[in-house]
Every structure is written in C-alpha cells, then in structure tokens.
Amino acid sequence: MAGLKSLLGENVEIRKVFCEKMCEIARRDGRLMYLDADLVGSSGMKPFLKEFPDRGIDVGIAEANMVGISAGLCLEGYIPFAHTFGIFASRRVFDQFFLAANYAKLNVKLVGSDPGVAATYNGGTHMPFEDVGLMRMIPGLVIVEPSDAASTAAFVDLLFEYYGSAYLRLHRKARPAVYSRDEKFEIGRSKTLADGGDVTLISLGSIMLEESLKAADILASDGIKATVIDALTVKPFDREMVIREAKKTGHIVTCENCNVVGGIAAEVASIITDEALPCRLGKIGVQDRFGQVGSLDYLIEDYELSARHIADKALEILK
C-alpha cells in the first residue's frame, strides 16, 4: 500500500505560482499592487515588476514605510500585497500593520515568507516562530497558510476578493503538490485529507502537512487510524472542524511550524475548553524557543516536528 505519503505529488516552486497568479490578477484588475522591501529577488516577483512597472514598488529596506504606503494605496482604492520575510512582516512592522492597516479598516494583504524553520540557513534572526501568535492578536485579521502551490494560488485569489487586511504566511520554495489546480478553497475552511477514527492530526503549512501525512502512515502501521486535516486558515479558525473531530476521535494533535504559544494549539485548546469537549490534546510545534541556523531536516528534528514526533505524540495521548 502506498499510504498517505502518496498524496504528496511532485515538487512545485511556490513563488513561481505566486508570481503567475499575481500577474494573472493584475492583467484583469487594475487595483492590484505589489510592494516589496528589497526582497524581490527572493519572492520571485521580478516578472511582475517587469510586466507592471507602475504597479510593483520595491521600497528598499524600509518595511515600516512599505506598510504605510500600502495603507495609503488602499485609501485610493488599490489592493496592495506587500511582501517581506515573516519576521519583518510581524515583529518589525507590528504597529504599522496593526494601526494603519487593521485599526484603520483598510485592505492591506501582508505576505510574510519563510515560515518558521523554512528560514533554514538565514538562521535564528530570520526564523519567524512568533508571527502566527502576534497576528492572531489583531482583531478581525484573516490569517492563512496555504500548504502547496495550488492552495497558495487559490488563497491569493480569495484574499484579493476579500475586503479587509490579511496575513499570508507564504512558503516560497519548491514543495510537494497536494491539491489539483481546480481544487476549491474557502477562507476559514480546513481540508480533510484522510479520515480515520482514532486520532486527528490538525496540521498547518506545507512542512507540517508532509510530516503529518507521514505520521499517519506510521500510525497506520501500528493499526491506528488517523484523520489528517490541513488547517489552511489560522483565523478565522475552522471551529466546526475542531468540534467535529473532538467528538469523533476525542484525540487531537496540532502540528505547526511556529511557537505553540499563540499558535493553532492555543486556538484548538480554547475551542475544546469553550465547548467543554471531552478531548485530549497533544501539541507538536516549537516549544517556546528561539530560532537557529541549520538544514531543514536538522531543524525539523531539533524542534521535534517530524513525523516520528507527531506519531509518538499521538500514541502518548492515546494511552
């Protein structure tokens, strides 16, 4: 049997698809703007700036200014997507994004790339573990983390159509395809990739989805049937899914590539207690630590994010 791992298709470079989608929207809608803070070389958006020189702005290494400019563009009816690394998009411009975009009820789509350990060789200074927690504190903000190229393209469309500020946690590099290009997504709705009755793995982002699917295979070899959920939206979180899964399996493991303090673990725990659900919760994620430099494999192992760690956590709460 091929197992759930077979759901992981060929690697597709996500930034290439992101750029193609942005160009596609820009061709049909004059409101789309793209801003970057000296990371166009990383974001893969050079083709956009070439095709739309007036609608792509590289502001230089000035993230606060970029968010302010984005807010100003909203006042003139434009829909700006502003990209920088996740650490700058969250920690560095938190007040600008909080006030000029969100408090002001404007329409800034902030794109933070290299989620968590994906920052690999840029190391601890560049490794956003806290962006999810920080962003969750902003009232009404939509936060999404697609898990492959197709879901990234779909969520760019959804965020463009949605009025309101949003945070897109973007994996730039090549990652396994999970969804077909015509898969339909909704803000606030998760996807169920495997349905098993013993334990539910709620995963966020590409890296953790791959590990979760592999973990489900490990569990299957022990005769344990796992449901694997791709959360996709951090806020508004798919509350109905949590209630359903808590009632169905009574055992949930959250799997996230960010600090569990403020992450989806906190969200799921809150739903379980709010609804007084009889459910055990295991939390896979960064256990309140700083980032560090290393290969992706090393970091996944060191922060205990691997399929083996997920499977062990599931077994632990199933005891």
């Binding site: 200014n65 302010g68 400019i69 100003g72 563009l73 006042l75 003139e76 700006p80």
Partner: peptide, 10 residues
C-alpha cells in the same frame, strides 16, 4: 508621511 506617500503614488 508613509501613508501620504501611498496616497500620492495611488
């Protein structure tokens, strides 16, 4: 002033 820059560009 950053916001004003955005309005001016727009």
């Amino acid at each position: 002033l950053s916001i004003a820059c955005g309005v001016a560009i727009g």
